[in-house]
Simulated assay, not measured.
Amino acid sequence: MADLYLKALESERKKLWATCRLKGLAKDTPERQRIAELDELLRAHKAKSA
């Protein structure tokens, strides 16, 4: 069965990362901070799954 939560997190991260790259946003922007939060959520979810 597909892990929809994991897919949603990865999808949001990819979308935000593409936006940041396109606009050339700095590290202290809300978008980049959200990417860091998503990375932590992904790490925690993968650790819990394993």
Rank of each mutant, 00 (worst) to 15 (best):
M1P: 13
M1N: 14
M1F: 14
M1C: 12
A2T: 14
A2I: 11
A2E: 15
A2V: 13
A2F: 14
D3H: 11
D3A: 05
D3I: 03
L4A: 12
L4Q: 12
L4D: 11
Y5C: 09
L6S: 05
L6E: 01
L6C: 05
L6K: 10
L6Y: 05
L6R: 12
K7N: 11
A8K: 10
A8C: 09
A8D: 13
A8L: 11
L9N: 07
L9A: 04
L9Y: 03
L9E: 08
L9M: 09
E10C: 06
E10P: 05
E10G: 06
S11F: 12
E12V: 00
E12Y: 02
E12P: 01
R13E: 11
R13G: 04
R13I: 07
R13D: 08
K14F: 14
K14Y: 14
K14T: 12
K14A: 15
K14W: 12
K15A: 15
K15M: 14
K15N: 15
L16E: 05
L16H: 03
W17S: 10
W17P: 00
W17I: 08
A18Y: 12
A18S: 14
A18K: 12
T19H: 10
C20Y: 10
C20V: 09
R21F: 05
R21Q: 15
L22C: 11
L22V: 08
K23Q: 09
K23W: 09
G24N: 01
G24Q: 02
L25D: 00
L25V: 06
L25R: 05
L25S: 07
K27W: 15
K27S: 15
K27F: 15
D28S: 09
T29A: 06
T29Q: 05
P30F: 03
E31R: 03
E31M: 03
E31A: 06
R32T: 01
R32D: 01
Q33N: 08
Q33T: 07
Q33A: 11
Q33E: 08
R34C: 01
R34A: 05
I35L: 07
I35Y: 00
I35Q: 00
A36E: 11
E37R: 02
L38E: 02
L38P: 00
L38W: 01
D39W: 04
D39I: 04
D39Q: 05
D39K: 01
D39T: 07
E40N: 02
E40P: 00
L41H: 07
L41V: 04
L41Y: 06
L42V: 07
L42W: 02
L42N: 01
L42H: 00
R43V: 07
R43Y: 11
R43W: 10
R43I: 03
H45D: 04
H45E: 04
H45A: 02
H45W: 10
K46W: 09
K46A: 05
K46S: 07
K46E: 07
A47S: 15
A47D: 15
A47G: 14
K48C: 06
S49K: 13
S49W: 12
S49N: 10
S49F: 07
S49Q: 10
A50Q: 14
